[in-house]
Design a protein around this nucleic acid. Structure first.
Lengths: 127, 127
DNA sequence: CGGGATCCGAGCCGATACTG
DNA sequence: CAGTATCGGCTCGGATCCCG
């Protein structure tokens, strides 16, 4: 799980809770993708660059546990399972969207700065 | 707002850049702590719940590489090194602050939901 | 269709010890 | 003070196979 017990670290820094969730590879994308409405397991898989089922399940279960989304199984054939944001999950959207916005605006800058930094380091090393 | 399904894959990629940085355990806290002005290595150590020097160095170097902060060495005795946010680093603050705000506001809710969920699961398991 | 089970590697992170 | 060096753990997440 992203984080287990509620110990001192969470008391002094509640941010860890969200940070750990945001930090994992797929949660943010899931929140944003479910923002428009519920989606099925396969829909999410497709959108999320073919994340493996295990990891997607793992992530979804964790988010369900935290009350960010609900999992609804329809007793049909073929099986259908829908994931939908709870109000709590929706409340995360305005927090997460700026992240992607910032990324889109600054990705080029960061990448070029990074490259420049690496070049400088290489130069120092060479003499 | 998240928009056209076809573009979602593109939203994902630049986001990874920021997500990976946010995901690591200390970057967000560092950005927030440097928001008020430059800080020394030891000051950061103290504030960040005694993160080990290795990890702090590792994180700071990564952020420096991405152009989020600068590292200034003062030729003094004893040695002094200050870390300061660049404008780019500062631009990240309004993105990160809502995260901690959300965390503080909802930590109790998430924790209790999580506990309730775990209890339910245990009950099912027990019969 | 929507997963579960298993194996496995990568890398973040921490503790401890030592240095210019 | 501000790191570096070494060792090791643990979790994340990908691949693959299998099931109701």
């Amino acid at each position: 799980m992203v984080k287990e017990a509620a110990d001192e670290s969470e008391i002094c820094c509640p941010s860890r809770l969200v940070l750990d969730r945001i930090g994992d590879k797929w949660s943010v994308l899931i929140v944003l993708n479910l923002g428009d409405g519920p989606k099925r397991f396969s829909e999410l898989r497709g959108v999320l660059h073919h994340v493996t089922p295990k990891v997607l399940t793992y992530t979804l279960r964790g988010m369900e546990r935290d009350g960010l989304l609900t999992r609804t199984v329809f007793a049909e054939v073929p099986p259908r399972v829908e994931y939908e944001l709870t109000p709590l999950g929706h409340s995360l959207r305005p927090v997460m969207e700026p992240i992607t916005t910032w990324a889109e605006e600054h990705v080029d800058e960061v990448l070029s700065l990074r490259k420049a930094h690496d070049t400088r380091s290489a130069d120092e090393f060479a003499g």
